[in-house]
């Protein structure tokens, strides 16, 4: 097939795959953003647990990061994707038997799984960032009579961002790429899945997987620009 007709397959018309790829791009960004938000929350909790005085909290957090880092993302994704439903079913069954019939949004389950995976890596990034804040500052804040929450809000969080941003940026880039794994679940209309569908129907594998790859590259380029801008902003007081 010549090039002109290949590109006509990618048109935005009713029979072209152009619009499908735009939708896939949107889904991939949505999944990545939502999963990233969850990993931020889990990362903060995890870092707090790792730095806490409680042995139990430290143990749980260590187990979490060790397990996630040792297991393939695909395996974790499938495990959480399938178990998410059963775990919630179990919890609900403890409350009442009325919840026998319920529906799990596959999008939410995939997001939860990716967020859980990202959270482990985020824990390490945030732990490192908190540790880089000079201890003297926290002691000084304590000496000023600031409460623990106030110290967190006024001293730790604002400075932490500066140290954590490079790591967080890398994790965002990983999150966008890891989101492609959900295509394996077969019910998420993400970018790679569109590549799969379009190539399976049209048999132009090389072309459509290249289109998907180029769009992923576009996400990366835009992300890198935004990260650079953010880094410049949080570092503005330091040059």
């Amino acid at each position: 097939m010549d090039q002109a007709s290949l590109f006509s397959l990618l048109s935005f018309g009713p029979d072209g795959w152009g619009m499908r790829f735009v939708e896939g791009l949107v889904v991939t960004v949505e999944v990545s953003v939502a999963a990233y938000c969850i990993s931020l929350v889990l990362g903060l909790i995890g870092a707090g647990a790792k730095l806490s005085n409680s042995k139990v909290a430290r143990g749980v957090a260590d187990l979490y990061t060790t397990l996630v880092r040792a297991l393939p993302e695909l395996l974790l994704l499938l495990l959480i994707y399938f178990s998410g439903a059963d775990a919630i079913k179990f919890i609900l069954s403890l409350i009442s038997e009325d919840f026998d019939d319920f529906e799990i949004n596959p999008f939410a389950a995939a997001v939860a799984a990716l967020g859980f995976i990202g959270g482990a890596y985020m824990t390490e990034v945030m732990r490192g960032a908190i540790l880089s804040i000079p201890n003297g500052q926290i002691e000084a804040a304590k000496a000023c009579g600031m409460s623990r929450f106030l110290i967190l809000r006024r001293v730790i969080l604002p400075q932490m961002l500066r140290y954590a941003l490079p790591g967080m940026g890398n994790l965002w880039l990983s999150a966008t790429k890891d989101s492609s794994l959900i295509s394996v679940l077969g019910n998420t209309q993400d970018l790679l899945f569109m590549g799969y569908r379009a190539s399976a129907v049209t048999k132009h594998y090389g072309f459509f997987y290249s289109v998907a790859a180029i769009l992923f590259l576009a996400i990366t380029i835009i992300s890198m620009i935004v990260i650079k801008m953010l880094e410049a902003r949080v570092n503005r007081g330091y040059r």
Binding site: V33, A34, K89, D98, F102, I104, N105, F107, V111
Partner: peptide
């Protein structure tokens, strides 16, 4: 939908009865 899914997951309120 981002906010929705984040909230839904965070609150573990994944279940909607059918």
């Amino acid at each position: 939908s981002i906010i929705k899914s984040a909230v839904v997951v965070a609150s573990l309120a994944l279940a909607t009865s059918a």
